[in-house]
Each structure stands twice: as structure tokens, then as C-alpha cells.
Amino acid sequence: MNARFIFFTSIGLSLCVAASPAGAGDPPITSLAFAPDGKSIAACSQSGLRIYSWPGLKPGKKLETIALNLHDVAFSPSGDRLAVGGGIPADEGTVEIFSWPGGKPLQVLNDQKDSVMGIAWLSESSIASASLDHSVVLWDTGTGSPVKRLKGHSRGVSSLCFLAKKKLLVSAGIDQSLRVWNLETGKLVHSLDNHTLPVHDLALRPGAGGLPMVASVSDDRTVRLWQPTIGRMVRFVRLNTRPLDVGWLPGGSRIVVTCSDGHLRLVDPVEVKVTKDLPAVEGWAYSLAVHPSDGSVVVGGSAGRLRRVIVGAARR
């Protein structure tokens, strides 16, 4: 066991410890991101971008957005800005950037023709956005202009994952594929087509050892592990329900997956088996975010439900 972690719950005692108030007619929480200090969380939905306290999940400030639908939220590498991707369905895709923690609107990036489903900060001055218009656009946040447009997906693009050291961007989409792009040239490096149904989300394994490893989740009920640099699928695990969002516990010991049955599952990436199956929210569990240090995960779901689930270890 890593000495830097202490366990304050056993595996059998994982539990939900906090939940936000929700109304039956509220829209689903589609994306979550912890603030760099871990003391608050940004959650987006059709109701807008709202900040919640952590771990109490008390609703706080709401940031007004242009977009009707919001799908992905991410803090900049330095943590001084917050970006949210979304748009007006079938019309416009937007990336809106706010100052953090002030919440002041700074920039709107909109050059795509349908909602932005996934964003990824590439540096302090560049961000990538994936849209249902099939494109991935690389932006210069200094000028607010698009720099490159990556074309290759035959249907909407749902998620992005940046491999900083390799200067590679992985995209995944409704066309059931993952695509690996060289960011310097904008060229497609690999097209990975093992999934048999649309892919929802990607997450890069934390830590520095070995080849970069990315987890993907798809309607085909699988969680697949990839080594994008060599264009290889390494392993996969089949679930008995559909996974919707994916993350990794700090250190990369487990993959965390939220599913359409409202559960949160932990997957051992080596043994490729589910090690925990925890009920989290009623309805679909669309989104998750792993706290950087306290051993818990926040799950966002249908009807604006938000719940903290303790899954194991907290950093000292």
C-alpha cells in the first residue's frame, strides 16, 4: 500500500456522504471539475455553470453563459481560468472562458456549427474543442482565433484527451472510433476502431510510468484501455450496463466509471475487472470528477443530482 495514502473507509463501506438538492424537472449535470484547491467544484448543465462547495455540495455562485447547453468544464493548467464547452444545438458550438476564482467572462470562442461536447487545455494559451459538427478545433486563447481544424471523424466528436509530453491529442466520437492527432502537424496518427458503438469519454491515466494509457467508455458497455502513442488497444472490460463518464483515481490504481444505472464502478486496470459497484444517483450518472486528494468522487446525474461518493483513499 502506498504510504502516502491512508484509508478512512474500507472497500465494503464506501458510501455517499453528501448530496445537493435536486428537482425532478432539473436538467442533468453533464460535467464536473474540481477547482485546483479542491475546495469547490464546477458543475455544468442546461441551467448554467454553477459552483458548489466541497465537500458540502452547497450551491454557490452561478456563472452566466451564452450557450444553452453545456457539456464540458475544465480548469486551465495554472488554475486561473475556467473553460466551459457547449453551444446551441445544431447551430453553434462555443467555448466560454472565465477568470478563476472571480468568474468574470473573458472570452467566447465559437467557430463550430454544433455543440462543443469536449474541451482540453493544451497549454496556458491554447485549448482544443470537440464538436458534434465532426470537427476538433485548436484555439489560440491569446487571439481568440482558431489555429487548426482536425477533420477525420465521420460523426460528432464527444471527448478529448491531451498527452502533453507526446504532443498528441486523442479524440473519440459517435463514429465509434478514437483518433490520435499530432498537434504540431495536425495530422492523424492513428485511428482506433475497436469500439462497436459510440464512445462517450476519455481519461488519461495519471502518473509518469510507462507508455501513456487512456481509458475510454462506450455504449458498447466496454471500458477499453489504449496506448495511443503506439496505436494499440491493451485491454478491455465489459460491464453489464452502459458507462457514460470515466476518470482515474490518483495514482492510476483504479478507473472510475459512472453508468446509465446511476452507479459508480471501480475497475482494476490490470485485472480488467470491476472491483466495486456503488449506487450513486437515481437515473443516469452522466458525469464524475475525482477529488485530487480526499479519496472521494463527485457524481452528477439526471434531474440535477449531485452526490459525493467516498471510494477509498485520501491523501494525507
Binding site: G25, D26, P27, P28, T30, S45, Q46, S47, G48, L68, N69, H71, P89, A90, S115, M117, L132, G156, S260, W284, Y286, S302
Partner: peptide
């Protein structure tokens, strides 16, 4: 209602639903 993160139905602004 569910797919594509529920984008086809806008519960916050129903008349804006796709």
C-alpha cells in the same frame, strides 16, 4: 431525453429544446 447528455430536451428552457 438521455442521449448526447440530454441535449435534445432543454429542461431549463423547454421552448429551446432541439
Amino acid at each position: 431525453v438521455r442521449q448526447v447528455e440530454g441535449r435534445r430536451v432543454n429542461l431549463a428552457r423547454p421552448e429551446e429544446s432541439l
